[in-house]
Computed example of a mutant assay.
Amino acid sequence: MSPILLGFLGSLAAGSMTAAGALPVLFGRQPGRAFRDLSLGFAAGVMLAASFFSLILPALDAAGEDFAGAIPPAIVCTAILLGMGAVHLMNEALPHEHFRSGREGPEAAALRRIWLFVIAIAIHNFPEGLAVGVGFGAEGFEGGLPLAIGIGLQNAPEGLAVAVALLGEGYSRLRAFAWAGATGMVEPLGGLLGAGVVWVSEPLLPWGLAFAAGAMLYVISHEIIPETHRAGHQKLATTGLAVGLVVMLFLDVWLGA
Rank of each mutant, 00 (worst) to 15 (best):
V164P: 01
V118Q: 02
A62G: 01
L26E: 08
A210H: 13
A50T: 15
V243N: 09
A195N: 01
M1L: 15
P24R: 00
A43R: 02
E107L: 02
E65K: 14
A210S: 15
G191E: 07
V118R: 04
L40H: 10
G41L: 12
K235T: 15
A22D: 01
F141G: 00
A109T: 12
H233W: 08
H233C: 09
L26Y: 05
P203D: 14
F99T: 01
L147D: 11
F211E: 14
P127V: 03
G41Q: 04
S16D: 09
G181M: 05
A231T: 08
P31L: 14
P106T: 11
A109Y: 07
A62D: 08
S51F: 04
A68P: 05
L166F: 14
A19I: 11
T78G: 15
E202I: 12
A63E: 06
A62E: 13
G102W: 13
A131H: 06
F35Y: 13
L166Y: 13
Q234A: 14
G240Q: 03
E158H: 05
A156H: 05
L89Q: 11
L255C: 07
G181S: 05
P106E: 13
Q234P: 05
D61Y: 08
L174F: 05
Y171M: 07
V197S: 04
G244P: 11
V118W: 07
A13V: 11
D252Y: 00
V200P: 11
L57P: 05
G159A: 07
V164R: 04
V76C: 12
S39Q: 04
L241Y: 06
F42S: 00
M248V: 11
K235P: 09
S101W: 15
L81G: 07
W254A: 13
A43K: 03
I220K: 00
L23R: 12
L48R: 06
E227F: 12
W207A: 06
A242Q: 10
A210P: 07
L166Q: 08
P95G: 00
G152A: 12
V198Y: 10
V253Q: 09
L160E: 02
V162Y: 07
L40G: 03
G184P: 01
I224K: 01
A109P: 06
L245C: 02
I149H: 09
I56L: 14
V219H: 03
L174V: 13
M1C: 10
P24M: 03
G191L: 10
D37R: 03
P146Q: 03
L255M: 14
P203S: 13
A165N: 09
